[in-house]
């Protein structure tokens, strides 16, 4: 599956980088999400959890 994140609406909680560090990191300047690896195996639990945990609801998996 492909990972997309809306950086405009990201609230820099760090939940994605904490939960799925192989796919997400945070911008050094303001903590906003960086998708470091946009492809993940379908249903990958860490990525699915990150999308579900994101407090701003900005991580989309397609």
């Amino acid at each position: 599956m492909r990972i997309e994140a809306d950086r405009q609406a990201c609230t820099s909680s760090g939940m994605c980088a904490l939960t799925a560090p192989d796919w997400f990191d945070q911008d050094e300047a303001d903590g906003r999400v960086l998708v470091t690896e946009p492809e993940a195996p379908d249903g990958e639990p860490a990525v699915t959890a990150a999308a579900e945990l994101c407090p701003a609801g900005v991580i989309a998996l397609r």
Binding site: S12, L18, P21, D27, D30, G31, R32
Partner: peptide
């Protein structure tokens, strides 16, 4: 956003 860079996981 002026403070969140300081509190990242890293």
């Amino acid at each position: 956003r002026k403070v969140t860079g300081v509190f990242t996981v890293k």
